[in-house]
Write a protein that binds this DNA or RNA. Structure first.
Lengths: 159, 159
DNA sequence: AATTTTTTGTTGAAATTGCAACTGTTGAAT
DNA sequence: ATTCAACAGTTGCAATTTCAACAAAAAATT
C-alpha cells in the first residue's frame, strides 16, 4: 500500500477521506461480517436465505401477520417477502389464510413444522448476541446500543 | 428442556427474540438505510455502483494500489473489484500499469479525470457524515464510534 | 531443472436482487 | 353506479452478485 510517495495531501486536497472510517462503509462491512457469521446457522441447517429467515422470525415473533406487515417489520422489499413466503410455504413451514373481509389480504402463520424450525433457530440468535456481548463487555455493548438506537432515530426522520 | 407440551401460542416456545432488536438485523438495516441515502450521490451524478465507488475511494485515498490491496482495504470480493476496476477503466477514470518484476500484478491509479471525480465526491462523503453527526449530537456519535470500533475488533478475531 | 503449490486476476454461468409492470380487489369521487 | 385512484401481492426481466473454474505467473518443493 502506498503511503506517501508522490501523492500527498497537498497534491490531493480531497484526501482526508479514509474509507475505513467512513460510516456507510463501516456499517456495511460490519453488517456483512455479522450476517456472514450468523447466517451460517440457518443456511447450513436448513438452506434458508436471509429473507426467509426474516419472514420466519417475524412470524415467530408475531404469530400471525400479513405480507405487508412483514415488509414493514423486516425492512425488506415486497418482492423479497413475496418470494420468501412462497418458499417457506413450499416447505410446509408457513400457511396462508385469506381474509374474509378483504380478499386482497392473506394472513400468514407458521405451521407446526415452521414453529419447530423457529424454536430451533431462535436460541442460536440469542446465544449469538450473548457471545458478542460477552466478547465486547458491558460498557462497549451499551455504547453500541446507544449509538445504533440514536442513529436509527435520526435516519428514519431524514432519509 | 421444554417447559410444557401445550405449544399453544407463538409467543410461548422461543420468543423473546424481537427481530428489531437483533444485532445482525439492526446492522443490516442501518447499513441499507445509510447506503441508500449516500449512494444516491454517486449513483445519480455518475451512474456509479457501490463497488466502483469503493475502488475510486480507495485509489483516491492511496494514490496507487493493486487490485488485491483494494480487495483487502474495501472488503469486497475480488470479482467485484475486478469488474469495478474494468468499469472505471472503461470510463477513463483509472489506469493500469503492469509491475515490472511481477507480471501478475497491475498497479492501479486514478487518471486526472478520475481524481476529478473523486475530488468532487469526497466532500459529499464528509458532509454526509457531518450531517449525521450534527443530527445525532456529540455524545451519541461518540457512543456509536466506540461501539462500532469495539465490534470491529471483536468480529475480526472471531469470524 | 522439473514439478507442484500458491498467488493474482479474469470470466461464465447460476442464483439473487430490484424495478416496473401487472392482476385482482377495495375505497373514494364524481 | 361508474369511474378513478389506492392497495396487496405477484411476476417478468434486466442488472448485480456469487461461486467455481480458469489462465498466467511466481514461489516452493522435489
Amino acid at each position: 500500500m502506498a503511503t506517501d510517495t508522490k501523492t500527498s495531501k497537498a497534491e490531493d486536497p480531497a484526501a482526508d477521506l479514509a474509507l475505513e472510517d467512513f460510516l456507510p462503509y463501516r456499517l456495511n462491512r460490519l453488517a456483512d461480517l455479522v450476517s456472514r457469521s450468523f447466517s451460517r446457522i440457518y443456511r447450513e441447517r436448513h438452506g434458508m436465505t436471509r429473507p426467509e429467515w426474516r419472514v420466519l422470525a417475524s412470524l415467530g415473533q408475531f404469530g400471525r401477520a400479513t405480507a405487508s406487515d412483514i415488509v414493514t417489520h423486516s425492512s425488506q422489499h415486497k418482492t423479497k417477502v413475496s418470494r420468501a413466503v412462497a418458499a417457506l410455504e413450499k416447505r410446509g413451514w408457513l400457511k396462508r389464510e385469506s381474509d374474509e373481509n378483504d380478499r386482497r389480504v392473506e394472513h400468514l402463520e407458521l405451521t407446526r413444522a415452521g414453529r419447530g424450525i423457529y424454536a430451533e433457530l431462535a436460541p442460536f440468535a440469542r446465544s449469538y448476541e450473548a457471545a458478542v456481548f460477552a466478547e465486547m463487555g458491558d460498557a462497549d455493548w451499551q455504547a453500541l446500543e446507544r449509538g445504533l438506537s440514536r442513529l436509527e432515530d435520526c435516519l428514519i426522520k431524514r432519509p
